Amino acid sequence: MQNFINLTPFPALQFESLDQQDHGFTSVVARLSYDLDIHSGTLRLCKEQGELVEQDEYFGETGRSSTRFESDLAPYKPRLDVVINATAWAPQDNAVKSFTAGIRIGEATRLIRIFGAREWRKMIASWQLGEAKPIASLDLRYEYAVGGFYQPAGAEPIASPANTVGMGWYPRAILKQTKVQRLPAPQIEWVTHPVENIDRAIAPAGFGFYGRGWQGRIEHAGSYDQAWQRDRHPLLPQDFSFDYWNGAHPWLQFPLPEPLKRLPVSLRYLVAASEVADQQIHLSVPVESLFIFLTTEQGAGVAQDMRLDTLVIDLPTRKIHCSYRTVVSELMSPVMTELRFIAEEERQQQQMLAARLNGDPHSSGFVPLPPSLLKQRQPGEADG
């Protein structure tokens, strides 16, 4: 493995991987953390940046509860994951039978409906949803969305293919055994895709990390069949897709934002009225100038932008975590990789310094710039 030098204040790691065609590449990942002011929407880089998340962290029992933070050690993500850990609050914090909360990411809006405790009620020929009890707030976790896991006596476990930690989904095998007339029902659903059938396994509603083995994600992991066991183990199946590494809900995955841009985010009813009167939070997440500068065996220097591919808004801690990633093919034969960062207020100065030193054949100085900054017009440069 080539040498890795982290010249930034952010936790970072370099590691090697293989793709589904057995081609080698190196991944570099870094995690930036901000303090969030929920009143102004202002973001400030945390003084203490913490560490990379190297193992999945759960809200409760490992593997039996929803994921709070997924490991940063994904080799590559083709899209941006947006994850929001939060509690939904009813308007003015007043208990109601149901209310809508939502988020806006760029131009995309996602709305969920929150219900108080409610039940499936057995009728003559079907199960119907009963009226919900009033509720003022509910943690947004997949435990309250449609799904479930059952362990019948003397039989194999039965789990929802779409959400093993959820509630309110009852397969026919379980319904045949039950003798009760009422069963707990889901409390979170998509506004556009309401829960309507007690035994239909559908994608759960939520803004958190999506289970690695759930329908909608597991399909991208490829085929681990006898042919793979015989011909490929322990390598990746050839039908593996890197889409698998995107860990947000499939409806909260977006195109990777361009470097140096900003990503507008709005949150509604994810904060109590006692803290923010109108219960709205508006912020703008910067896509920072974070990049690698690598040196090859041939002595060439190459700069490459890191891409923001994971945005986690953790409202309980008032923190925002942004993971950046890039990959380098082994064919480039890198021997040294430096991780560099240029703060927004320093970009113009660095551009001017690079223009002065890098183009001077008599200068011994050199200022690496990422492609995103090189594409910008230098200060004072004439049109032409």
Results as ranks from 00 to 15, higher is better:
351 Q>G: 10
359 G>S: 11
281 I>Q: 00
309 D>M: 09
333 S>V: 06
314 D>I: 03
344 E>M: 06
313 I>H: 05
345 E>G: 05
329 S>E: 14
263 L>A: 08
306 M>C: 12
267 L>S: 00
309 D>W: 07
302 V>T: 10
314 D>G: 03
272 A>Q: 12
300 A>C: 06
272 A>K: 06
252 L>I: 02
268 R>N: 10
260 L>Y: 07
273 A>L: 05
254 F>H: 10
310 T>L: 13
310 T>D: 14
291 F>I: 10
251 W>H: 12
296 T>E: 10
256 L>S: 08
307 R>M: 11
326 T>R: 06
360 D>A: 07
279 Q>N: 08
285 V>F: 02
305 D>C: 03
315 L>E: 06
309 D>L: 10
319 K>D: 00
333 S>G: 03
297 E>P: 02
340 R>Q: 13
293 F>C: 13
319 K>W: 01
306 M>H: 05
349 Q>V: 00
278 D>C: 06
279 Q>P: 04
315 L>F: 03
277 A>T: 12
295 T>W: 03
250 P>D: 02
354 A>E: 13
310 T>A: 08
362 H>I: 03
254 F>G: 06
279 Q>L: 11
335 V>A: 02
283 L>F: 01
342 I>W: 08
337 T>V: 15
263 L>I: 14
317 T>D: 15
308 L>P: 05
284 S>K: 13
273 A>R: 09
280 Q>W: 09
326 T>L: 06
314 D>V: 04
328 V>C: 05
261 K>W: 11
345 E>F: 08
342 I>P: 13
300 A>E: 13
293 F>K: 12
314 D>Q: 12
346 E>N: 12
351 Q>V: 02
302 V>A: 04
278 D>E: 14
